[in-house]
């Protein structure tokens, strides 16, 4: 912090850690990606004479509602983990952002969150297998194309975000989870969780 001439200058305050801010910006771009996909799907549906296309299976809306719940719960538990993390960080009260001791209280909700997220992805996988068996493929109709495109895109994001969460969890257990990494992984997962109900509403219902 240079203070030439003896005039003290304050370093600028920052609202978010680098990781959280970066991931937030990235998430805005992602929101627009899904907005593009969903609006394209909405237009395709509106243009269709009959919907769903004849001879195509119905999407499992009920089972997926249950799965949606699992995903939302996962987001909730991650939030609990975050609260614990912040609390333990305040307790250390040092300016160091690297957490020295494993924040034990944050670990359990963090782990539950990851497990619920993994459950969500696996459950989706079993749904896909069933739908493929019933004849809904990516090339079979507009419905099939958009379904696998949009839901598959979400699944890809969910898997990437889970990988990041697992990595962050390992750092936490080793006692060196930085605020930046934690911020980035939680923001990404919140994005995956929060965009899902919109997709469920637009695609399944």
């Amino acid at each position: 912090m240079g203070t030439p001439g003896g005039v003290p200058v304050q370093r600028n305050a920052r609202i978010l850690s680098n990781g959280a801010l970066a991931m937030l910006i990235f998430s805005f771009a992602e929101v627009m990606l899904f907005a593009g996909l969903v609006s394209a799907f909405t237009i395709a549906k509106a243009n269709a004479l009959v919907w769903p296309p004849p001879g195509q299976p119905r999407l499992p809306a009920f089972e997926t509602a249950f799965n949606t719940l699992a995903l939302l719960l996962s987001g909730f538990f991650l939030y609990r983990a975050q609260l614990e993390y912040w609390r333990s960080k305040e307790a250390t009260s040092a300016p160091v952002v690297v957490l020295q001791r494993p924040a034990a209280a944050a670990r359990t909700p963090f782990l539950i969150s990851i497990l619920l997220g993994a459950f969500f992805v696996l459950f989706q996988g079993t749904e896909w297998v069933a739908l493929l068996r019933e004849g809904l493929t990516i090339a079979s109709s507009q419905q099939g194309g958009f379904f696998y495109l949009i839901i598959g895109m979400h699944a890809a994001h969910a898997i990437a975000a889970l990988a990041l969460l697992v990595y962050a969890y390992r750092q936490l257990t080793h006692g060196n989870l930085t605020e930046s990494l934690f911020g980035a992984s939680t923001v990404f997962w919140y994005f995956v969780v929060l965009v899902w109900p919109v997709l469920y509403w637009r695609v399944y219902l």
């Binding site: 990606l33 907005a35 394209a40």
Partner: peptide, 13 residues
């Protein structure tokens, strides 16, 4: 950032 998403969607399609 805010405009590229829909085009990425379009490009994938």
């Amino acid at each position: 950032m805010l405009s590229v998403g829909p085009l990425i969607a379009a490009a994938i399609m």
